[in-house]
Simulated scan of single mutants.
Amino acid sequence: MKLTVRSSTISEGEWDQFILAESPWAFFQSFAWGETQLLEKVAVARWEFLLDDRKIAQAQTILVKAKRGTFLHVRHGPVVNRELVNDNLLWRQILEFLAAEAKKENAWFCRIGPLLANTQETQRLFANLGVRPAPIHAMDAEYTWVLRLNEAEETILANMRKTTRYLIRQAEKQGVVVKASHQIEDFLRLYNQTAKRQRFVPHRGIEAEFAVFSKRGQAELLVASHSGQQLAAAVILYFGKQAIYHHGASIVSKISASYLLQWHAIKEAKKRGLEWYNFWGIAPEDKLEHPWQGITLFKKGFGGELRSFVHAHDLPVSPLYPVSATIEAVRKRLKHY
Rank of each mutant, 00 (worst) to 15 (best):
T9W: 02
T9A: 09
S11T: 15
W15F: 09
Q17Y: 07
Q17L: 11
Q17C: 14
I19M: 07
S23L: 02
S23R: 01
P24F: 04
F27M: 09
F31D: 07
Q37E: 13
L39P: 00
K41H: 11
V42R: 09
R46C: 08
D52I: 05
D53M: 03
K55C: 13
Q58L: 09
Q60D: 10
K67N: 12
V79L: 04
V79P: 00
V80H: 01
N81K: 11
L89Y: 13
L89M: 08
L90F: 00
W91C: 02
W91S: 06
Q93F: 01
E96Y: 11
F97M: 04
A99E: 03
A100Q: 13
E101T: 06
N106V: 08
R111H: 05
I112V: 14
P114M: 13
T119I: 04
T122C: 00
T122N: 06
R124H: 13
N128C: 10
L129W: 11
A138L: 15
V146G: 02
L147A: 05
L149D: 03
E153C: 05
T155P: 02
I156F: 04
T164F: 04
Q174L: 13
V176M: 08
V178M: 11
V178C: 12
F187I: 10
L188A: 05
A195C: 06
A195V: 08
R197E: 11
F200D: 07
H203Y: 12
E207F: 01
F210A: 13
F210W: 01
F213H: 14
F213W: 15
Q218Y: 02
L221M: 02
V223S: 05
S227L: 12
G228N: 07
A234R: 11
Y238P: 00
G240D: 03
A243M: 02
Y245G: 04
H246E: 13
H247A: 10
S253E: 07
S253P: 05
I255R: 02
Q262R: 04
G273Q: 02
E275Y: 08
W276H: 07
W280Q: 13
G281D: 06
I295M: 12
F302G: 01
S308C: 10
V310D: 11
H311Q: 11
H311D: 03
Y321M: 09
Y321H: 14
V323T: 12
T326R: 13
